[in-house]
Simulated assay, not measured.
Amino acid sequence: MHRHLYPMLVAASFAFAAPANAQDYTIEMLQENLDRPWGFDFLPGTDRIALTLRGGDVLLWHPDGLVELTGAPDVVFGGQGGLLDIAAAPDFAQSGWLYMTWTGAAEGGTTTHLGRARLDGMALRDLEVLHAVSPGIDSGAHFGSRIAFADGHVFAGFGDRGFKNFGPDHIAQDLGSENGSVIRLTLDGEIPADNPFVGQTGAAAAIWSYGHRNIQGMTVHPDTGAVWVAEHGEAGGDEVNVIQRGGNYGWPLASFGVTYRGGDEFAPPHQPGDGFVAPAFHWPAGRDNHNPPSGMVFYDGDAFSDWQGHLLIGNLLHRYLALFDEEGGELTPVARLLDGQNWRIRDVAVGPEDGFIYVLTDGEDGKLLRLRPAG
């Protein structure tokens, strides 16, 4: 890997009229020509953004240009795998830690790794693996993964690796497997003693919740501190979930989705009292209703005053940024932002200083965008 400057892009902007029940906004193009970007985060106290390319590069964006950092982890790039999420530690200003998830080799195939490295100038140093999901599997699908920090711990959400046995033996229902789960660790990668399955025979002690299909979004509610995730359904039935300690989210024994081939119901929908945690929101069943979510964030800035407390979730297939009103853990759709721009939305964040909305698009010509109020 080598360090180089990417071509500097002069920000371009154009106005976009939002739906009647949402504020108008202007889109600014901050960077183009990003090869399969996946995650990004602001570096606290700076004007810089760290972002990942799935092929294995960690980049540092700032208003003067874009630089590739040295010291990124070695990744297995292929299928849906590669270098995935990135998040600055809560104490980044003191520690310099950047947390990352990536696909790496493991016994049995590949798996998702959670690790961290210190940002030192234009280099990542002291790279360490905090956790490797077990078991490794020979599959290129459903790695997840997203990172969030809450209650002094690091949470990471993973996928089920495309496991196709839709019965009770599915890997996401196996407490001995961390695939299809959310894990909770200390910031140093240790397993907390109060994790729900610590000491349970045959269970992976890192698991905080399970029964997930493919987690692609994760954020923390600014008022309640609860961890929220967005995950893909089979065909439709994509979900937004509020994570509970020890919760079983049902996949594939309870789902609002149907099979890709034939549209058959392979599990009953979530029902009260079925032992599974039902989603806070789900999209309808059916391949035409498939709304695979991606990065998500609660809006807590001042720039878009009408959107305070709303939830933003990217959409990959239908290529829009969803805006939801949230009240008491329930979501109501408000608007489809960026609809018609033909951009697969991969990640979203709120600028900590300006309150603008930053968006990362997917693909071989990925873009870093900024949404600011019109006028």
Rank of each mutant, 00 (worst) to 15 (best):
H131M: 07
T259E: 08
A117T: 06
A12K: 15
G236Q: 04
V76W: 12
A156R: 00
V76E: 12
F149K: 04
G273D: 11
Y25L: 02
F298A: 08
A17V: 15
E265R: 14
V76Q: 15
W61S: 07
D91P: 12
N289W: 02
G295L: 02
G121S: 02
G81S: 01
A285H: 08
A15R: 13
A172R: 12
I86R: 09
S177P: 10
L185A: 01
E326F: 02
Q173K: 13
Y6S: 14
F42G: 01
P292M: 04
E326I: 11
T46M: 11
G250F: 05
W307C: 04
A205D: 04
P7H: 14
E326L: 09
S181N: 05
R116G: 00
P333V: 01
V334E: 07
G202H: 06
S305A: 14
A267L: 03
H131L: 14
M1C: 15
N21G: 12
T361E: 04
R336T: 10
W251A: 10
E190K: 13
R372Y: 13
L311A: 01
Y249T: 01
S139N: 07
N289A: 13
G176P: 10
Q23Y: 12
D151T: 08
Q31A: 15
P37N: 02
V10Q: 15
V129G: 04
A72D: 05
A88V: 12
R54I: 09
D288W: 07
